[in-house]
Structures are given as C-alpha cells and as structure tokens.
Write a protein that binds this DNA or RNA. Structure first.
Lengths: 246, 246
DNA sequence: ACGGGTTTGTGAAGCCGTGCACAAATCGCG
DNA sequence: CGCGATTTGTGCACGGCTTCACAAACCCGT
C-alpha cells in the first residue's frame, strides 16, 4: 500500500530501508499457515478465497486474516475476496521463498535421519544442502543423494552450498559448540532441536523446537482438566462430541 | 497474589476450580523452560538460585521470572533466592508431572521411529506407552521394548496403557482421521506433527509442531536482513562477536 | 445504470504481556 | 542487636495484539 518509490537518486547513505515498513512478529508467524492453507485451497480448484474461508482453513478469526494481509499491502477485492495465486506469490515474496533456501542438518542421529528423509522440504521452499556430523564413523555415509561431511569442513560446506539456515539435531552437550561454529561460518538463522538455550551474537536468529516442552504444556492442561481421579484410574472423561469449526 | 482473575471467557460458575486461580498461558509455556534450567542448575550442585541466574539460564528477563513464579504462589526467600529442589517440585506439581504420563505415537514412519528412539522422554516425565500404525506391514514390528499395534485397537490400547497424550506423526492425509479416533478413544491432548489444522471437539487440546513453518519464519528474517546481495554470494555478513549477555 | 448483497480494509476499544522501579523482607556480620 | 547488602514480590505504565463494528468498494442481475 505505502509502496515506497525506489529512490532513483538513491538514499544518501547507510540506511537501507526495506520495502515493508515493519511487519508485526505475530503476523509473520501466521503467514506460513496462510500459505499452507492457500496451497491446499488452490489444489482444490478455488481461484479466489474470502477472508472467512481462509480463516477457517488456517484456524483463526477472519478479522485477523484481513488485518494480517492488509499489513503486507494486499490486493484483495471487496465483495469478492483474494486471488489465491496472487496471494500465494505475495506471501512467498514476503517470506523470501522465491529463491529456494538451502539448509544444513548438523547431527545425523535419529532425528537427523528422520528429517533428512522427510519429504516436506522440497514442497515448501527448502532443500537440504548438507548433512554434517562430528563423528568420523558417520562421515561419508550416504543418505539419498547427499553424503555426510565432517563439521570441520563446515565453512567450506556453507560457502559451497550457499547454506542459509542451520538445523541443529545434535545431543544437548554439542549444541552450543555447533551453534558457535555455524555462526562463525556465516549462518545467521538457526533452528535448534536440542533442549537448551543457545547463546548467539546479535543479528543471529534462533528458533527452538523442544518436544518435551510441548508435551509438558499439554500435560498442564490435562492435569488442570483432570482433577477427580487422584490415583490415575483409567476414567474415560469423554468430551462432548460436538465438533469445532467449519 | 490475592489478585483475582476477572472471569473473561471462563464459565460463570459451577466448576470448582482448584488451588491456582488461573495461570496466564504465557507463563505456562515458560514453566517447562524454567524446569529444564532448574534441573541443569541442580545438577551443577546449586541448591538455591536467584531470579537473575534462573532468567539467564532460561533466556528471559529476571522480572518475568519473578512474576511467573509469583503466579504459582512461589516460595522464594528475599535476599536469598529460590530453593532449587522446592521450585522443581512446585513446577512439576503445577504441570502435572508428578505422575508419569504415557504417550502414544501414532504413525511409525520416519519421524515416528526417530521419536521412539529419542531418549529425552523418560528424563522429562513422559513414557512412550504405545506405538500405533495403520499399515499392517508395520504392525508387530518391535522398537525397543514396544510392539507396534494396529490403530483399530486404539481404544483398548489407550485404556490398557492409560494413554494421556497422543502424538500424531502420520502423513497429512491421515492426520484428521487419526485425531478423530484418538478423541473417540478418550484422549484429550494431542501433539500434531502433521502440517495441517486439526478439528477437535471443545475440551481437547491440540498443539502443532511444523518444521516448515519454523523454517519459513526464519526465512523471513533472513530475507529481511539479507538485502544487498541479490545474487546470493556467500558474503559473510559477520555479526559483532559480542555474545548476548548471560 | 442502479440497487442489493457481499466482502475488504480499518478505526477504536479492550486485553494481555512485558519491563521498570521500588518497597518489603531476609540474611550475614560486626 | 542493628545495619547494610541482597533479592523477592508487585504496582504501574507502556506497547502490541486481538476483536468488534462499520463505512467504503466492488460485482451482478435486472
């Protein structure tokens, strides 16, 4: 909306202001969900979608969808809705998915193997560009069309494969050291599966995925709900069969 | 502490709610992080901890720690700090981790195998009580000391193993059906790894873990940061070597 | 062309969460 | 026994996010 006229004369100095003013973090975290829903809708043959329908598919309220989309200067048509194809392209543009991003998997253990074999990367804008491990016994192992390289070669690997994101799937004890080496190699985005807090310089982005934490949060609500059978009898506390939503 | 929660969305009355008035969701989601940090601290030999130290270990601000802990009627001692052992017990109590919770893994594919082999369950209050799949070829397979059972036996399995939480690691197409069957079997907490939105009845809690979404959020920040080298040269955009403070 | 029905975009209000700053409480030590 | 150092617990203000409600914009049939 407030499309910035690309300064033909150029900004005088230093300040490289991006196109979008500043996208709220909450919105950013929902854009991928919209994107997923939109692909689903597109595959179903719909070529336009209302905020109401999109909201239902993404599991949020319609007002939120509209405000989110308006943030990125959206092209919706009143009385009609949004063009699915246009919206997909818009969101992919904003998320930086127009160019495929290469990720490196550090730690080819149980979880690393599973992620390497997960097919969901390619269809969502990513590609596994490197498998890395510290264990010499694992180096050289082939998975698909990739060969596990040693972590000592990380800088070369990052440069050669243009790695944009590092995914840490090592044991906890190794995670911080791996993060340090990733940062030293120039990686500025890290997805951490190890259950620990990583220290990184300013300007490096870290997101954590901790299975146990998710389970514990679920446990809290379960516990809160389930007062009444102190000695865990298998009391079946059946929820009402009413189905939420669309 | 006598601060009363103004009933907003909650039921007007009737449910005799236990000790805790109403814990903010943001606090709940941080308690597991505190718990992890506390175990770490306890293992280091510390028997008391200040909010400042705990905040550093959990990666948050100290004021937030104090406010969070005060929410659950904490037993801190001014001028000293918190007793680590007491705090651990308090948090485990609130999270309902005093009794070990059994989880069922539905979908013994790549990811399912990885999670089944993940050792982090036992030490964090959970136990895999069942492995379930729909593929007859997989039923009967042994992993560790568990045997994969068929999903048609889900109700019996849930009852026999006192399953509290279902973890969905199936392909997307199967996820909703699995969720329905989990709910029908009496499970009221679901951790969903399939990239889709699940419809469940009121009273059932669902949490989603989507790898691609996390990557896309990282991609956004990477994209936003990385204006200036359009043809992705491996320009090392080194952040200041300053380490983010403890 | 025009009116009715539909849907977007957004101003405004309310809620939640965060962080500061400080009084109250506790310990250690002289 | 009292004083200073330390740390908790919390009132308060601020900012961000969510939701409602509604005017503006648009399509379509007549």
């Amino acid at each position: 909306m407030s499309q910035f006229p690309r300064g033909s004369t150029g900004p005088p100095d230093g300040v490289v202001v991006p196109d979008l003013p500043e996208l709220p973090e909450a919105t950013v975290s929902r854009l991928p969900e919209y994107l997923r829903a939109l692909h689903q809708i597109a595959q179903a043959g719909q070529d336009t979608v209302s905020s109401e329908a999109l909201a239902a598919a993404a599991g949020v309220k319609s007002a939120k969808v509209r405000k989110d989309l308006s943030q990125l200067g959206s092209y919706g048509t009143r009385g009609v809705g949004y063009e699915v194809a246009v919206l997909i392209e818009q969101i992919e543009q904003v998320l930086g998915l127009t160019q495929r991003r290469n990720v490196a998997l550090i730690g080819v253990g149980n979880l690393g193997h599973a992620l390497a074999g997960y097919g969901g990367f390619g269809s969502r804008g990513f590609r596994i560009g490197a498998l890395v491990d510290a264990d010499p016994a694992r180096v050289g192992e082939r998975l698909g069309d990739l060969v596990v390289t040693h972590i000592d070669e990380l800088p070369a690997t990052v440069a050669a494969e243009q790695i944009a994101i590092g995914v840490i799937t090592t044991p906890v004890v190794a995670a911080q050291a791996v993060a340090d080496r990733l940062v030293a190699a120039g990686v500025t985005s890290i997805l951490n599966f190890a259950p620990c807090v990583l220290s990184v310089p300013d300007g490096v982005d870290v997101r954590n995925v901790d299975l146990a934490i998710e389970l514990q949060i679920l446990s809290f609500h379960e516990h809160r709900r389930g007062r009444g059978d102190p000695d865990g009898a298998a009391a079946v506390r059946r929820a009402a069969p009413k189905v939420v939503g669309p």
